[in-house]
Write a protein that binds this DNA or RNA. Structure first.
Lengths: 221, 221
DNA sequence: GTCGGCTGACTGACTGTTCAGTCTAAAGAC
DNA sequence: GTCTTTAGACTGAACAGTCAGTCAGCCGAC
């Protein structure tokens, strides 16, 4: 394209687009290689730019990676909330949340688990990332609370403390996701799903148990 | 520095001792700085050796860090099992396990959480570390199973599937620990402890609930 | 004397960042 | 309509710092 002179594959596009491309590329590379193994050159190659241009846009590598982390979080959250709205029952909504997290690495357009591990590791040592991570988890729990509250409004769920449930449920899902992401022989996605929904059943006083060995490649709706 | 002869603080000691010192130093630095921010020079300084000596002992940086990771895991496990043996009841034992994990970073001689995050991140991308991590978690769950089985033998606990409980409980503790390690405003150590023991109470059919606001700086024995 | 633990000085590779300048397209000037 | 100017996206080529790993040799103990 852009025939005569340059031989760019893409028309390059507006600065905003370029920026987004770079963030996406950075998030992707970070997911594959890991935070600190990510080179500016990798990101640049991936979005068809020069390393200098990446610096031109973000100033420093650190800023690029930090922003990419945030961008990825936002994207994950946006995708989740959008998908949630399309589901009618609390049960389906909770199932969706579990699916979105307890997924083997690399599946779907969701940022891989590598990013989460790195996010935690970075949050432990960098103030700014720590703040982001707290906000992200708060949002995540609020999402769970909203799902439960909605279920209570429709009468699907009885009276439980949605906030308490959210804290525990979020922690449980995190823990299960780790096992799934690391391909633990004891905890495959199916089992993780059943454990999570089993806990939700008990805690919320409903019967959402999934019969073992029944489910299969149930891509959330 | 390097006055007349040597001004070593320690008599340096046998090679085995030296090796162990290096592993401990490496684990400590990794916990502080993170896996990939750990420099051989840092480790060397910490155990009062030259960078060249560290390479002399371990060949490559990679080998050093991998071994340090394993060493740290083993140490954590050894400390835990030793402490467990000193406690009579299943309740006290489970409480100990929760304490050992849901602790703010840096407290105690237990390897900090930074190491765990890095372990996960590395396991995601390196076969060898992945194997170690699976073995570690398997050991961890077996520890929980043993505690439960012991409680069932003494009649303290009723009939539950210890393995199922272990998988869920381990995941829950992991998730809670992350929040505690990252100083989440919503999940302090105290709350994490209560949530974990509350879950155990329900799952095991006993009443181990800890009344809120009661506990304080309870350094596990 | 020799052997193994140990070291300082060095190197080679890598990589974030800078910089001087190119190319493009839009905005004015005429 | 054509020429000039300007802004800003973009780049290749260096630069400078960092570090893992090498090497030739020291030194004390057996």
């Amino acid at each position: 394209m852009a025939a005569p002179s340059t031989n760019r594959v893409e028309p390059v596009g507006a600065p905003d687009v370029r920026r987004e491309q770079m963030l996406e590329a950075a998030a992707a590379v970070m997911g594959e290689r890991g935070f600190s193994e990510t080179r500016i050159a990798d990101v640049a190659r991936r979005c068809d730019a020069s390393p200098a241009l990446v610096i031109y846009y973000f100033g420093t590598k650190d800023r690029l990676l930090t922003e990419a982390l945030r961008w990825s979080e936002d994207r994950f959250y946006a995708l989740c909330t959008a998908a949630l709205g399309a589901l009618p029952t609390a049960r389906e909504r909770l199932e969706l949340l579990v699916h979105r997290t307890c997924v083997p690495d690399g599946a779907g357009e969701v940022p891989g688990w590598g990013l989460w591990f790195d996010l935690w590791a970075q949050a432990l040592r960098h103030q700014e990332v720590a703040k982001d991570r707290i906000a992200l988890d708060e949002r995540w729990r609020r999402t769970i609370v909203d799902v439960v509250a909605h279920g209570q409004d429709t009468g699907e769920l009885g009276d439980v403390d949605a906030k308490d449930f959210a804290v525990t449920f979020a922690a449980l899902i995190d823990g299960l996701s780790i096992q799934v992401a690391l391909v633990d022989p004891e905890v495959d996605p199916d089992r993780a799903f059943r454990i999570a929904m089993g806990f939700a059943s008990d805690a919320l006083g409903v019967d959402w148990r999934v019969p073992a060995k029944k489910r299969r490649s149930s891509s959330g709706r």
